[in-house]
């Protein structure tokens, strides 16, 4: 067994943390895939784990259980509450530790039944309804917010189902994963008063998906393809029966409202962010590579009702 120490800050939001985190996660992914050694993943020293990095980690481990068809390749050492209360809170109290040990589809289904923050699924309609039940139960959103978030989630889940894995190279892993799988996290962070919803797939990524969809988009570089794909009115796509989900995905971000709400997308070497205060989307090249597509909505609950 080889012991791998998880970085103290498991985070992809800041430039300072992203490199170490994504490099670690790629190393872990490669080490698992190579199958040469079994791994002990040691979380003892983790002080902070951001939601997006946690979902990426969940996806790496979860996919490996399906592909390798056993769970003996990895063990975990969790942070202890009395020695590392912050690490315990981010890894254990959030349910990430339970998600990381969900090594069968039945255990993943159980995460959904228990309405845990971290979940994984392959059926958009069923899981969309379940996720909406969780959001509705918590009653954190206004009705208008709820309508917009439910549309956004439906389009993000359908995008996974329709487009994310549309390449012959994924046929084997789709079979292993029992479908076109995504991993997600929906939680309310009381410290910053934000609802965070994340949908992450391990598919092609927006750039490859977009540029392969039409000859018109071949030759687009990474940032141009992602920003174009997430721009309104891709008419040639619409007429091909796709292409307007990006409107739904951006709509929950309250344009012009006082509070800062953010849409964040990591895909390949691109980070795309859209903020309710600044309104103009920012699309930038990052040196680290993020396989697939991660979409994160960070929303202020019950916006406008307290003011």
């Amino acid at each position: 067994m080889t012991t791998l120490k998880v970085p103290k800050r498991l985070c992809i939001y800041t430039d300072a943390d992203r490199r170490a985190t994504l490099n670690f996660l790629s190393f872990l992914d490669n080490a698992i895939s190579s199958g040469r050694v079994d791994i002990i993943l040691d979380f003892t020293d983790v002080e902070y784990a951001g939601a997006a990095a946690s979902v990426r980690l969940f996806a790496v481990i979860s996919r490996a259980y399906f592909v390798k068809k056993n769970s003996n390749f990895i063990r975990f050492i969790w942070p202890k509450k009395n020695q590392n209360p912050a690490g315990h809170r981010y890894i254990v109290a959030t349910g990430l530790s339970v998600a990381l040990t969900a090594n069968t589809s039945a255990k993943l289904d159980q995460l959904c039944e228990e309405k845990r923050f971290f979940q994984s699924a392959v059926e958009p309609f069923i899981h969309w309804a379940n996720t909406l039940n969780v959001l509705d139960d918590k009653a954190l959103l206004t009705f208008d917010q709820y309508l917009l978030v439910s549309s956004a989630l439906s389009e993000a889940m359908l995008n996974v189902s329709h487009h994310a894995y549309e390449h012959p190279s994924f046929s084997s892993v789709i079979n292993d994963m029992e479908g076109k799988r995504w991993w997600q996290c929906c939680w309310y962070n009381s410290e910053i008063n934000k609802i965070v919803c994340i949908i992450y797939d391990l598919g092609l990524g927006i750039h490859d998906s977009f540029t392969s969809a039409s000859p018109l988009f071949r030759g687009y570089d990474n940032t141009t393809s992602v920003s174009t794909a997430l721009t309104l009115g891709q008419s040639r796509f619409v007429n091909a029966g796709r292409g307007n989900g990006s409107e739904d995905i951006k709509r929950p971000i309250g344009s012009g409202c006082a509070d800062s709400e953010t849409l964040l997308v990591f895909t390949g070497n691109v980070k795309y962010s859209y903020n309710s205060v600044h309104e103009v989307p920012k699309c930038e090249l990052i040196t680290e590579y993020m396989p697939g597509t991660l979409i994160e909505w960070s929303l202020v609950p019950r916006r406008g009702e307290d003011g």
């Binding site: 439910s150 359908l158 007429n239 029966g241």
Partner: peptide, 18 residues
């Protein structure tokens, strides 16, 4: 009582033409 996604609207109404 839930949001209706663009893919539903496009396929239902754009699909009438397409």
């Amino acid at each position: 009582n839930h949001g209706v996604g663009s893919s539903f609207l496009e396929e239902a109404f754009g699909g009438l033409v397409r």
